[in-house]
């Protein structure tokens, strides 16, 4: 339970933050930027199950490319990313950030588009610096979008399962056994569908509670 929350909150926060940064960087109508943005979406185009498998191969201590890169940097014994109970959950967070940052980027760009260009121009002419423009214009206008993105990332983070299944099977020990992995096991592995459905409803309640602040934030904005 604690692990589920940690995973959900940490990965959502990182995804939204990274997505915002990348979106601000990519939000330019310059030649080539469209292609860059499109390519950036690529991690999302691969089924999470295979994302997990591919990262597991890359992180393998026997022939993984990651260990090789570390050895080039002079580190001969990097951590066992997936097999060390102290690292495994963080590795799962990392991989989920890798896959889903593009989601945040996509919608933040859409949100930025809604900010009228002339407003920015005017502010710029009035001598507002980049940071001031961001702080006082972009941020308030983008807030509803960011809340909605965070909302979906939290919901999906809570359900995250494929990556864990493919990379660690809930291990080592129970370091990456999250609620959704547990529900999956009850449902598909043991075929105890009644129990799985009950757990799923409990989870539903928990996500609803967890996302309530985000929901309220979003609604207040739109009511204003």
């Amino acid at each position: 339970m604690r692990r589920t929350l940690l995973l959900t909150i940490e990965s959502s926060a990182l995804q939204v933050a990274a997505g915002l940064g990348v979106a601000l960087l990519f939000n330019r109508n310059w030649p080539g930027m469209g292609a860059i943005r499109t390519l950036f979406l690529a991690p999302m185009m691969i089924a999470p199950l295979f994302v997990g498998m591919i990262w597991r191969l890359m992180l393998s201590d026997d022939f993984g490319v990651v260990r090789y890169l570390f050895s080039l940097a002079g580190v001969s014994e990097p951590p066992l990313w997936l097999d060390d109970p102290d690292w495994a959950l963080q590795t799962v967070v990392f991989v989920s950030v890798w896959e889903w940052t593009a989601f945040a980027m996509l919608f933040v760009i859409a949100g930025l588009q809604a900010i009228p260009g002339d407003v920015m121009e005017a502010a710029s002419l009035d001598g507002c610096g980049a940071w001031q423009r961001f702080r006082h214009m972009t941020w308030p206008l983008l807030r509803p979008t960011l809340l909605a993105v965070a909302l979906f990332r939290v919901i999906d983070g809570f359900k995250l399962f494929d990556i864990i299944f493919a990379m660690t099977a809930g291990g080592p020990g129970d370091a990456t056994t999250t609620l959704s992995y547990f529900v999956y096991q009850q449902g598909l592995a043991f075929f105890d569908l009644g129990y799985a459905a009950t757990l799923a409803l409990v989870m539903l309640g928990m996500v609803a509670v967890l996302t309530a602040p985000l929901l309220r934030g979003g609604t207040e904005r739109s009511a204003a």
């Binding site: 909302l151 919901i155 999956y184 799923a200 539903l204 929901l215």
Partner: peptide, 17 residues
């Protein structure tokens, strides 16, 4: 709107059968 979201909150495995 919250109702629309509920559906996305359910772990997919519970919807499979």
């Amino acid at each position: 709107r919250s109702g629309v979201l509920l559906f996305r909150m359910i772990p997919p495995i519970a919807l499979l059968l």
